[in-house]
């Protein structure tokens, strides 16, 4: 098998290939404003590094977020289109789960990424593979005290150090497609289900119903 993994739900634009035994190649760049430009070149680089062609890919797995929407959608649109054009299945996995998996921790911890608007996307884990709560979106200071007391990974924790009391700078700040690919390969090998490749927005779109018609000629 040749699994192509992508994630664009954090500032990292990341693509990796996994053959069922291990990660063959990883290509990534961190630029929160250029997901759309950087993703396909990253896929191309990863394939080049692994010496494989896009036609050899047998499945795609994509990070479903939560993450800032515009970037998140780049990965999901790309994965869906690659899957359709290649005729291969497309799976989803939570982006916070991929970060959790990358920590390798065997004790309870929290993952938090930057949700902008002074909020974080967060989830609580029992260990690297087991999510207990979340994902959710909230102001860091409003999270339950026991969540804030746990070791915390992710750029959201780094950003709100005053709220997260045990920030672990040694743990990954952003998602990596290498971890996403490894987690997906592990689950597929174990016969465990992956998610549907649908975005986890967690917020309603910003849209206000305009208050009735306002006269143009009067203030």
């Amino acid at each position: 098998m040749l699994l192509l993994a992508l994630d664009t739900a954090t500032p990292a634009v990341t693509a990796a290939l996994h053959d069922g035994h291990g990660v063959l190649a990883l290509a990534e760049e961190t630029d929160a404003r250029r997901h759309g430009e950087l993703l396909m070149p990253a896929v191309d680089r990863a394939l080049g590094e692994a010496g494989r062609g896009i036609g050899e890919v047998t499945a795609v797995v994509v990070g479903t977020g939560p993450g800032p929407y515009t970037g998140l959608r780049v990965g999901l649109a790309t994965a869906a289109a690659l899957g359709a054009a290649l005729g291969v299945p497309v799976h989803g996995l939570g982006t916070l789960d991929a970060i959790a998996y990358a920590t390798g921790l065997t004790e309870p911890f929290t993952v938090a990424t930057d949700a902008r608007r002074k909020e974080v996307y967060w989830a609580r884990y029992a260990d690297a593979r087991t999510r207990l709560d979340g994902p959710g979106v909230a102001k860091a200071a409003d999270l339950p005290p026991d969540v804030l007391a746990l070791p915390a990974a992710g750029a959201g924790a780094l950003l709100y150090r005053d709220a997260f009391r045990a920030v672990r700078e040694d743990l990954p700040a952003h998602a990596s497609a290498a971890a996403l690919a490894a987690l997906a390969a592990e689950r597929l090998a174990a016969g465990l289900p992956l998610d549907a490749p649908h975005p986890q927005y967690l917020r309603r779109p910003d849209a206000k119903v305009p208050a009735g018609y306002k006269a143009v000629t009067r203030a």
């Binding site: 997901h35 759309g36 993703l39 396909m40 896929v43 191309d44 896009i54 036609g55 929407y69 515009t70 959608r73 780049v74 649109a77 790309t78 994965a79 869906a80 289109a81 690659l82 359709a84 054009a85 290649l86």
Partner: peptide, 20 residues
């Protein structure tokens, strides 16, 4: 609209690349 354009551009790149 930037965010709207990006969905189409991402899908188009993926199709073009996958199909060569």
């Amino acid at each position: 609209l930037a965010g709207a354009l990006l969905v189409g551009v991402s899908a188009a790149k993926a199709y073009a690349y996958a199909l060569g």
